[in-house]
Write a protein that binds this DNA or RNA. Structure first.
Ligand SMILES: [Zn+2]
Ligand SMILES: [Zn+2]
Ligand SMILES: [Zn+2]
Ligand SMILES: [Zn+2]
Lengths: 142, 142
DNA sequence: TTGACAAATGCGACAAAGTCGCATATTATA
DNA sequence: TATAATATGCGACTTTGTCGCATTTGTCAA
């Protein structure tokens, strides 16, 4: 467990952007580093001991996303979810129990998605690819 | 232009579900049939002459989606967008001008996405695949 | 054609998610 | 340790969406 304090890498990314290494910022990064994708409200609740203001959490999530330290997921529904991706991946959200599972995807797929740029004469910087359906537990019950 | 009144097909879908063919319902379907993807607020504004209540528009969109008459898009951002898809497709939302463009995608891609079911032992019913980047106009300016 | 009954609508209050300006507090660094 | 830049709390506000309930409208069969 050498993840209690922010890594050198994160510290240098913050320093490059003249951003401070504050307790709140660390708390959010540490929380996401060891959890499933969370909504802003999930994070506010999870950190209620740390007593972080709602607005601060929203600002922080926006900022950390801009820095590329966290990913923002657009799953079906009206909230955004956030996570730290060790490697690029996508998800399934179960329409029955609402669990979010990481999915295995052939590497070919994401490579193909990058090529869409050339076909369409545009500049793609990101793709949002999420699935809905039944997780392996729920598909037994329906 | 034979699309002024709801098609036989739509009428029969509505009848099957014991749903009425009301002016508001027709207005929303007709509007989406001849426009780019629109948010609920876009639709409310566009139909302000028809004086449809906000709640009615939201209820209607939910209902038409359940019927499969319209598609709900989860683009990056916090609104949902709605459209009538003549054929399944995906979009690019421009991070500079926020225009939504329909994208050409190799057919192979959506076929691969269906196979994820077998790899992951789950039941996929839908995929949400949307892109962000620069549209062909905006990429000239940056 | 006309009830009768189900479905749709308007209204207004509410809820959830997110944003903003401004005064205060904290951080880095010299 | 002083300073300047950054971060935070607070509270009001906005946007997006939902709900219950009274009223109106659409459908269908008599
Ligand atoms: Zn499930
Ligand atoms: Zn990918
Ligand atoms: Zn553009
Ligand atoms: Zn597809």
């Amino acid at each position: 467990m050498e993840q209690h304090s922010p890594s050198k890498k994160i510290k240098s990314i913050l320093a490059d952007r003249k951003a401070y290494t504050t307790p709140h910022r660390q708390a959010i990064v540490n929380l996401l580093a060891q959890s499933k994708p969370m909504s802003a409200q999930d994070i506010i609740s999870a950190l209620k001991k740390a007593d972080i203001n709602r607005a601060t959490v929203y600002r922080e999530l926006k900022f950390l996303k801009e820095l590329g330290l966290i990913e923002e997921l657009q799953l079906p529904g009206r909230k955004k979810y956030y996570e730290i991706q060790k490697h690029h991946h996508h998800h399934l959200i179960c329409t029955r129990c609402h669990t979010i599972k990481q999915l295995e995807l052939p590497r070919l797929v994401c490579k193909l998605l990058a090529d869409i740029t050339y076909i369409n004469n545009c500049t793609i910087t990101n793709h949002n690819l999420e699935f809905s359906g039944l997780c392996n537990r729920c598909q037994k019950y329906l």
